[in-house]
Design a protein around this nucleic acid. Structure first.
Length: 232
DNA sequence: GCGACAG
DNA sequence: ATCTTGTCGC
Protein backbone atom coordinates (compact mmCIF):
# COMPACT_ATOMS: atom_id res chain seq x y z
CA UNK A 1 0.00 0.00 0.00
CA UNK A 2 1.38 3.44 -0.96
CA UNK A 3 2.22 5.93 1.79
CA UNK A 4 -0.69 7.87 3.16
CA UNK A 5 -1.06 11.12 1.18
CA UNK A 6 0.68 14.00 2.92
CA UNK A 7 -0.46 16.87 0.71
CA UNK A 8 -3.73 18.00 -0.76
CA UNK A 9 -2.44 17.30 -4.28
CA UNK A 10 -1.51 13.72 -3.34
CA UNK A 11 -4.93 13.22 -1.79
CA UNK A 12 -6.73 14.42 -4.90
CA UNK A 13 -4.66 12.07 -7.05
CA UNK A 14 -5.47 9.19 -4.70
CA UNK A 15 -9.19 9.97 -4.98
CA UNK A 16 -8.94 9.86 -8.75
CA UNK A 17 -7.26 6.48 -8.56
CA UNK A 18 -9.86 4.97 -6.21
CA UNK A 19 -13.07 6.50 -7.57
CA UNK A 20 -12.98 4.22 -10.62
CA UNK A 21 -13.09 1.16 -8.37
CA UNK A 22 -16.37 1.94 -6.58
CA UNK A 23 -19.21 -0.52 -7.12
CA UNK A 24 -22.52 1.24 -6.33
CA UNK A 25 -24.67 -1.88 -6.52
CA UNK A 26 -25.46 -4.82 -4.32
CA UNK A 27 -28.20 -6.79 -2.59
CA UNK A 28 -30.06 -6.18 0.65
CA UNK A 29 -28.64 -7.49 3.90
CA UNK A 30 -29.65 -10.91 5.14
CA UNK A 31 -31.31 -11.20 8.54
CA UNK A 32 -28.24 -12.75 10.14
CA UNK A 33 -25.94 -9.99 8.91
CA UNK A 34 -23.35 -8.33 11.13
CA UNK A 35 -23.28 -4.56 10.68
CA UNK A 36 -20.41 -2.40 11.88
CA UNK A 37 -20.52 1.27 12.77
CA UNK A 38 -17.34 3.33 12.79
CA UNK A 39 -16.64 6.79 14.17
CA UNK A 40 -13.72 8.96 15.23
CA UNK A 41 -13.04 11.44 18.06
CA UNK A 42 -10.27 14.02 18.19
CA UNK A 43 -8.15 15.88 20.68
CA UNK A 44 -6.47 18.41 18.42
CA UNK A 45 -4.60 19.93 21.37
CA UNK A 46 -2.71 16.70 21.96
CA UNK A 47 -2.82 15.58 18.31
CA UNK A 48 -4.63 12.39 19.31
CA UNK A 49 -7.32 10.62 17.31
CA UNK A 50 -9.28 7.54 18.37
CA UNK A 51 -11.57 5.40 16.23
CA UNK A 52 -14.10 2.81 17.30
CA UNK A 53 -15.75 -0.03 15.40
CA UNK A 54 -18.88 -1.53 16.91
CA UNK A 55 -20.39 -4.65 15.42
CA UNK A 56 -24.14 -5.26 15.78
CA UNK A 57 -26.46 -8.13 15.01
CA UNK A 58 -28.64 -6.64 12.26
CA UNK A 59 -31.84 -8.22 13.56
CA UNK A 60 -31.51 -8.04 17.34
CA UNK A 61 -29.38 -4.87 17.38
CA UNK A 62 -27.25 -6.43 20.08
CA UNK A 63 -23.58 -5.47 20.23
CA UNK A 64 -21.49 -8.45 19.17
CA UNK A 65 -18.04 -6.92 19.37
CA UNK A 66 -16.27 -3.58 19.64
CA UNK A 67 -12.74 -2.36 19.04
CA UNK A 68 -10.86 0.92 19.27
CA UNK A 69 -7.63 2.22 17.77
CA UNK A 70 -5.67 5.33 18.71
CA UNK A 71 -3.25 7.28 16.55
CA UNK A 72 -1.92 10.65 15.54
CA UNK A 73 -3.78 13.16 13.41
CA UNK A 74 -2.27 12.78 9.94
CA UNK A 75 -4.33 15.16 7.84
CA UNK A 76 -6.22 18.44 8.43
CA UNK A 77 -9.95 18.69 8.00
CA UNK A 78 -10.66 19.86 4.48
CA UNK A 79 -14.19 19.58 3.06
CA UNK A 80 -14.05 16.86 0.44
CA UNK A 81 -10.98 15.22 1.95
CA UNK A 82 -12.43 13.98 5.23
CA UNK A 83 -11.45 10.40 4.51
CA UNK A 84 -7.74 11.18 4.71
CA UNK A 85 -8.24 12.49 8.22
CA UNK A 86 -10.56 9.81 9.54
CA UNK A 87 -9.64 6.55 7.84
CA UNK A 88 -6.23 5.64 9.32
CA UNK A 89 -7.55 4.80 12.80
CA UNK A 90 -10.80 3.43 11.34
CA UNK A 91 -8.85 0.90 9.28
CA UNK A 92 -6.98 -0.17 12.41
CA UNK A 93 -10.17 -0.55 14.43
CA UNK A 94 -11.81 -2.62 11.68
CA UNK A 95 -8.71 -4.81 11.33
CA UNK A 96 -8.93 -5.62 15.04
CA UNK A 97 -12.45 -7.00 14.67
CA UNK A 98 -12.63 -10.78 14.96
CA UNK A 99 -15.71 -11.05 12.74
CA UNK A 100 -15.94 -9.73 9.19
CA UNK A 101 -18.77 -7.15 8.88
CA UNK A 102 -21.39 -7.68 6.18
CA UNK A 103 -21.81 -3.90 6.03
CA UNK A 104 -20.01 -0.91 7.51
CA UNK A 105 -22.03 2.25 8.13
CA UNK A 106 -20.02 5.46 8.17
CA UNK A 107 -20.68 8.86 9.68
CA UNK A 108 -20.52 10.89 6.46
CA UNK A 109 -20.99 10.35 2.74
CA UNK A 110 -20.21 7.70 0.15
CA UNK A 111 -20.87 8.47 -3.50
CA UNK A 112 -22.53 11.74 -2.52
CA UNK A 113 -19.33 13.71 -2.79
CA UNK A 114 -18.03 16.44 -5.09
CA UNK A 115 -15.60 13.92 -6.58
CA UNK A 116 -17.77 10.85 -5.94
CA UNK A 117 -15.46 9.37 -3.33
CA UNK A 118 -16.63 10.24 0.13
CA UNK A 119 -15.47 8.57 3.32
CA UNK A 120 -17.70 5.50 2.99
CA UNK A 121 -16.80 4.73 -0.64
CA UNK A 122 -13.14 5.31 0.08
CA UNK A 123 -13.26 2.85 2.96
CA UNK A 124 -15.12 0.30 0.86
CA UNK A 125 -12.58 0.36 -1.96
CA UNK A 126 -9.62 0.14 0.43
CA UNK A 127 -11.03 -2.82 2.37
CA UNK A 128 -13.33 -4.56 -0.10
CA UNK A 129 -16.07 -4.37 2.54
CA UNK A 130 -19.62 -3.33 1.76
CA UNK A 131 -20.16 0.25 2.98
CA UNK A 132 -22.74 3.03 3.11
CA UNK A 133 -22.69 6.59 4.42
CA UNK A 134 -25.23 8.21 6.73
CA UNK A 135 -24.60 11.93 7.20
CA UNK A 136 -26.30 14.43 9.48
CA UNK A 137 -26.14 17.46 7.17
CA UNK A 138 -26.59 17.92 3.40
CA UNK A 139 -23.03 19.07 2.66
CA UNK A 140 -23.28 20.92 -0.65
CA UNK A 141 -26.23 19.00 -2.08
CA UNK A 142 -29.88 19.94 -2.49
CA UNK A 143 -33.11 18.12 -1.72
CA UNK A 144 -36.81 18.65 -1.28
CA UNK A 145 -38.21 18.08 2.17
CA UNK A 146 -39.24 14.42 2.46
CA UNK A 147 -42.71 13.53 3.79
CA UNK A 148 -43.24 13.75 7.57
CA UNK A 149 -43.39 10.03 8.36
CA UNK A 150 -40.62 7.61 9.24
CA UNK A 151 -39.45 6.00 6.01
CA UNK A 152 -40.35 8.96 3.81
CA UNK A 153 -37.53 10.18 1.60
CA UNK A 154 -36.59 12.48 -1.25
CA UNK A 155 -33.68 12.40 -3.69
CA UNK A 156 -30.42 14.03 -2.69
CA UNK A 157 -29.20 15.94 -5.73
CA UNK A 158 -25.89 17.21 -7.02
CA UNK A 159 -27.30 19.44 -9.74
CA UNK A 160 -29.60 17.02 -11.58
CA UNK A 161 -27.75 13.88 -10.58
CA UNK A 162 -29.17 11.72 -7.79
CA UNK A 163 -26.38 10.95 -5.35
CA UNK A 164 -28.34 9.71 -2.33
CA UNK A 165 -31.51 10.18 -0.32
CA UNK A 166 -32.75 12.47 2.43
CA UNK A 167 -34.33 9.79 4.61
CA UNK A 168 -36.69 10.40 7.53
CA UNK A 169 -35.81 7.79 10.15
CA UNK A 170 -38.22 9.16 12.77
CA UNK A 171 -41.57 10.84 12.25
CA UNK A 172 -41.33 14.59 12.65
CA UNK A 173 -37.53 14.60 13.01
CA UNK A 174 -34.93 16.02 10.61
CA UNK A 175 -33.90 13.52 7.91
CA UNK A 176 -30.49 11.90 7.58
CA UNK A 177 -28.60 11.77 4.29
CA UNK A 178 -27.87 8.31 2.97
CA UNK A 179 -25.58 7.46 0.11
CA UNK A 180 -24.05 4.33 -1.33
CA UNK A 181 -20.54 3.56 -0.25
CA UNK A 182 -19.45 0.38 -2.01
CA UNK A 183 -21.09 -2.91 -3.09
CA UNK A 184 -24.62 -1.96 -2.02
CA UNK A 185 -27.55 -0.28 -3.79
CA UNK A 186 -29.15 2.95 -2.62
CA UNK A 187 -32.52 1.40 -1.75
CA UNK A 188 -30.74 -1.37 0.17
CA UNK A 189 -28.57 1.12 2.05
CA UNK A 190 -31.68 3.08 3.08
CA UNK A 191 -33.43 -0.11 4.12
CA UNK A 192 -30.53 -1.00 6.40
CA UNK A 193 -30.35 2.54 7.80
CA UNK A 194 -34.05 2.51 8.62
CA UNK A 195 -33.80 -0.86 10.33
CA UNK A 196 -30.91 0.35 12.47
CA UNK A 197 -32.57 3.67 13.36
CA UNK A 198 -35.76 2.47 14.97
CA UNK A 199 -35.50 4.45 18.20
CA UNK A 200 -33.29 7.42 17.36
CA UNK A 201 -32.60 9.61 14.35
CA UNK A 202 -29.17 8.06 13.75
CA UNK A 203 -28.54 4.34 13.29
CA UNK A 204 -27.52 2.38 16.39
CA UNK A 205 -24.22 1.56 14.73
CA UNK A 206 -23.04 5.15 14.53
CA UNK A 207 -24.52 6.05 17.92
CA UNK A 208 -22.61 3.28 19.64
CA UNK A 209 -19.41 3.88 17.70
CA UNK A 210 -19.64 7.56 18.59
CA UNK A 211 -19.99 7.02 22.33
CA UNK A 212 -17.36 4.28 22.28
CA UNK A 213 -14.64 6.36 20.60
CA UNK A 214 -15.37 9.37 22.83
CA UNK A 215 -14.90 7.24 25.90
CA UNK A 216 -11.71 5.71 24.47
CA UNK A 217 -10.37 9.20 23.72
CA UNK A 218 -11.05 10.39 27.26
CA UNK A 219 -9.27 7.32 28.60
CA UNK A 220 -6.31 7.81 26.27
CA UNK A 221 -5.95 11.43 27.37
CA UNK A 222 -6.09 10.46 31.06
CA UNK A 223 -3.47 7.78 30.48
CA UNK A 224 -1.26 10.33 28.72
CA UNK A 225 -1.50 12.71 31.66
CA UNK A 226 -0.60 9.99 34.12
CA UNK A 227 2.43 8.85 32.13
CA UNK A 228 3.69 12.40 31.70
CA UNK A 229 3.78 12.64 35.49
CA UNK A 230 5.56 9.33 35.83
CA UNK A 231 2.51 7.59 37.29
CA UNK A 232 2.71 4.53 35.00
C1' DG B 1 -13.43 37.37 -6.21
C1' DC B 2 -16.11 35.69 -1.89
C1' DG B 3 -18.43 32.49 0.80
C1' DA B 4 -19.99 27.66 1.66
C1' DC B 5 -18.35 23.40 3.00
C1' DA B 6 -19.34 15.57 5.45
C1' DG B 7 -16.61 15.30 10.49
C1' DA C 1 -15.13 17.51 15.17
C1' DT C 2 -15.14 20.54 19.65
C1' DC C 3 -16.37 24.36 23.21
C1' DT C 4 -20.96 23.95 26.86
C1' DT C 5 -26.27 24.75 31.28
C1' DG C 6 -30.28 24.37 31.56
C1' DT C 7 -34.41 22.87 29.75
C1' DC C 8 -38.54 21.01 27.15
C1' DG C 9 -40.68 16.56 26.32
C1' DC C 10 -41.72 11.44 25.99
Amino acid sequence: MPAWPATEADALAEQDRLRALVDPTGPALSDDALVAGVDVAYDDERDVVVAAAVLLDFTTLETVEETTAAGTVRFPYLPGLLAFRELPPVLDALAALRHRPDLVLCDGYGIAHPRRLGLASHLGVLTGLRTAGVAKTPFSFTHDQPGPARGDWSPLLDGTEIVGRALRTRTGVKPVFVSVGHRIGLAEACEATLALASRYRLPETTRRADSRCRRALAEAVLRGRGESRGLA
